[in-house]
């Protein structure tokens, strides 16, 4: 059996601890995600889904519990080391695509490679261009985000998340800001790319139809994560 890409144990996240405004967002989350697995996480707003993604993606530090990404224990890592984990092991996709407005589509997708300090190699650029071709953005390479549609921008965000060959991609409502047709197209791209690249995929969504297409479905409720039956068409 292969090693899990993500292994989280007893994750607790408390904000404003010890004050009257204390909020317990995660109450002891355990999770294992294997390479190539495609998981969906559903749950009501405020149930802790986004916090879970932030903690798993080394953007946020849990109050207690451990997270291992591709065998690396995040506990005790320095900020620069956490940044390195985010760059090399994790890709993020956000609801509002968050492309950088000053850069072209190609530059945005190469950004995770570029911030390593040097010009991306020809092979890396070639791979990114191939991904852009797969998501049908070959003709948008030199366009600014403002010149692209919402669906095109989100597909570019998918390619950017994959550009540095991460082991884990975390997507927070990746289709939430798109119409159903564009959303379905983006989801298709996500799933295909994840499978072809062997990347573990954790997607937070409110869309029951998209959640149902995952390999495994998880439900977040009051800070606790539980496995649930994936909703199937007609549910």
């Amino acid at each position: 059996m292969s090693e899990p890409v993500v292994e989280a144990r007893g994750l607790v996240q408390i904000y404003e601890a010890g004050t009257t405004r204390e909020v317990r967002v995660l109450r002891g989350v355990d999770l294992r995600v294997l390479p190539g697995e495609f998981l969906s996480v559903v749950g009501q707003s405020g149930s802790g889904k986004s916090t879970l993604l932030n903690v798993l993606g080394a953007l946020d530090v849990p109050t207690s519990g451990t997270v291992r990404i591709d065998g690396i224990d995040l506990a005790g890592l320095a900020p620069d080391e956490l940044a390195d984990v985010r760059n090399r092991k994790v890709g993020f996709i956000f609801q509002f695509h968050h492309l950088l407005g000053e850069f072209t589509c190609l530059e945005n997708t190469l950004m995770p490679l570029f911030l390593r300090g040097g010009t991306p190699s020809k092979a890396e650029v070639g791979r990114v261009k191939e991904l852009l071709e797969r998501v049908e953005l070959s003709d948008q390479l030199h366009k600014r985000p403002s010149q692209m549609s919402g669906g095109q921008q989100q597909r570019a965000a998918v390619v950017r998340a994959m550009a540095a060959s991460p082991r884990l991609v975390l997507a927070d409502e990746p289709t939430g800001n798109l119409d159903s047709r564009s959303g379905a197209r983006v989801f298709e791209v996500l799933r295909d790319v994840a499978r072809q690249e062997g990347v573990a995929f954790l997607m937070v969504t409110h869309d029951q139809r998209l959640a149902g297409q995952a390999d495994r479905c998880l439900r977040m409720e009051d800070g606790l994560l539980s496995e649930t039956a994936c909703p199937r068409p007609g549910d």
Binding site: G57, L59, A83, N87, F92, F94, H98, L100, L115, R160
Partner: peptide, 14 residues
């Protein structure tokens, strides 16, 4: 917003 997204991609504070 751009700073946040750059950090999520692994850009270091410095």
């Amino acid at each position: 917003r751009e700073i946040g997204i750059l950090k999520s991609m692994g850009t270091r504070d410095r």
